[in-house]
Design a protein around this nucleic acid. Structure first.
Length: 114
DNA sequence: ACACTGACCATAA
DNA sequence: ATTATGGCCAGTG
C-alpha cells in the first residue's frame, strides 16, 4: 500500500484538494493533520513536494497572515503572487487581501450538513 | 547519534 | 511597534 503516508504525503494530499481561487495556511493544514505546532513541517513538506510532483499548488498555501512566505522558493517566472492573482485572489505587497474570503479549510469544502 | 536547519506560531520582554 | 526565544518534528550534514 502506498500507505507510507509520511507527514509529507498528507500535506500533499490536502494541498492538492485546495480548490481554484482558494488558499489555506500552514497552521490549518498542520492542525488538520493533528500535528499542531508542526506548521513548519508543512512548509518543509511543500519544499520537498517539488521532488515529487508538480500537481501540488503550493502557491495556494500561505502563512497565518496571508503573507506569501514561500514565494521566494518559487524559482520561476510566475511568482506565487502572480499565480494567486491569476486565480482571482487579490494580493498587495505579497500579502493576500480578504484572506478570510479565499481561505479554504480541509473538510469544510464538502459542507457536511446545514 | 548529534547539530543544525526550516515556506510557522505564540508568547515574552 | 520590533526582536528574541521556545516549541514543534522531520530531513540533512
Amino acid at each position: 500500500m502506498e500507505n507510507q503516508n509520511s507527514f509529507f504525503e498528507k500535506v500533499y494530499e490536502v494541498v492538492r484538494r485546495i480548490p481554484y481561487g482558494r488558499v489555506t495556511t500552514y497552521g490549518i493544514i498542520a492542525e488538520y493533520l493533528s500535528s499542531k505546532g508542526s506548521a513548519r513541517m508543512v512548509g518543509w513538506a511543500l519544499n520537498s513536494s517539488k521532488y515529487h510532483l508538480d500537481d501540488i499548488p503550493a502557491h495556494r498555501v500561505v502563512n497565518r497572515k496571508g503573507l506569501l512566505t514561500g514565494k521566494k522558493y518559487f524559482g520561476g517566472h510566475h511568482t506565487m503572487a502572480d499565480l494567486l492573482q491569476s486565480e482571482g485572489i487579490e494580493i498587495v505587497d505579497d500579502c493576500i487581501q480578504h484572506l478570510e474570503r479565499v481561505l479554504w479549510v480541509p473538510g469544510t469544502d464538502t459542507k457536511p450538513m446545514d
